[in-house]
Amino acid sequence: MFSWSYVLVFFLGTTFTILAEFQRMHSERDKDERMAKLHYESIRDDLTGLLNFRAFDKEINSLSHDVQDNDTFIGVLDIDHFKKINDTYGHLNGNIILSDFSKRLRADIHYNFDPHCAVYRFGGDEFSFVISTSKPQNMIDLLQKFENYYKTHPVTISNGTKVTFSFSCGITRHLVGETYNKALERADKLVYQAKKNGRGQIVVDDYLKEKTNNNNIDH
């Protein structure tokens, strides 16, 4: 004898199974999205959205094996007298300058070298970039244009004041077999040399001195 109760039980059981599976899949998707968001946030600078130091090793390792004929270069940039800017105009206005600087730096580098590049903010007014290229002169030309831009194009802060500033930059080639932090330390020392020499300039290592021919670079 046919019983509707069996049909109802079967229908309800199947429905509950489908709903449970849907809920499980939805929960796993939410978990994956949360993990992806946490990973993204863990390697990004809160203020500028640039990559941070946590992402440095991974990105540079990828770029150093990017193209066989390319060299990998590491640059460090430091805004000159940034503490004075903060003390004079306040930290919120200092953040406006950092945001403007980071957006233009990233845009210029990625426009010219993407996907063979990465741009970072390590904290404060210290930025870094990694570029994989076989034409270092193009990289130097770009950085000089970037330097000259901020010397002639002030950033407008919240009260309407236009702030002009410069930055010091050191660039070195990553050597085969050395740690990336070692190359970063060398670039840091070149930045200090740029500041010691009067700030607002780019200092490069001996390899770039031989490979580039612009007299405006301090070697």
Rank of each mutant, 00 (worst) to 15 (best):
M25C: 06
S27P: 00
S27R: 06
E28L: 09
K31R: 14
K31D: 08
K31H: 15
D32T: 11
D32F: 14
D32I: 10
E33T: 09
E33H: 13
R34M: 08
R34H: 15
M35G: 00
M35C: 00
M35D: 08
K37S: 04
K37A: 07
L38S: 13
H39S: 13
H39V: 11
I43K: 06
R44W: 14
R44D: 13
D46H: 11
L47I: 09
G49C: 11
L51R: 02
F56N: 01
F56D: 04
D57V: 03
D57F: 11
K58W: 13
N61D: 06
S62D: 12
L63F: 04
L63S: 01
S64M: 15
V67H: 13
V67F: 11
V67I: 08
V67W: 15
Q68M: 04
D69G: 04
N70K: 06
D71V: 00
F73L: 08
F73R: 00
G75S: 09
D78Q: 05
I79P: 00
D80V: 02
H81L: 05
F82H: 06
F82Y: 12
K83T: 07
K83D: 07
K84P: 00
K84S: 13
K84Q: 06
I85H: 02
I85D: 03
N86D: 07
N86C: 07
N86E: 10
T88W: 14
Y89P: 00
G90Y: 08
G90C: 03
L92D: 10
L92I: 12
I97H: 02
I97Q: 01
L98D: 01
L98E: 00
L98K: 01
L98P: 01
S102A: 15
S102E: 06
S102C: 12
R104I: 11
L105I: 08
L105V: 01
I109L: 11
H110F: 14
H110R: 12
Y111D: 10
N112M: 14
D114P: 04
D114E: 15
D114R: 13
H116K: 10
C117K: 02
R121D: 07
F122S: 06
G123W: 12
G124P: 05
E126I: 04
S128L: 09
S128K: 08
F129N: 03
I131C: 04
S132N: 10
S132E: 09
T133S: 13
S134H: 10
K135E: 05
K135D: 11
K135A: 08
K135Y: 13
P136Y: 10
P136C: 11
Q137D: 05
N138D: 12
I140R: 01
L142W: 05
L142Y: 11
L143V: 03
L143K: 11
L143A: 08
Q144I: 07
K145A: 07
K145T: 05
E147P: 05
N148I: 14
Y149V: 05
Y149P: 00
K151Y: 14
K151M: 15
T152S: 11
T152C: 00
H153P: 00
H153T: 09
P154F: 14
V155Y: 15
T156K: 15
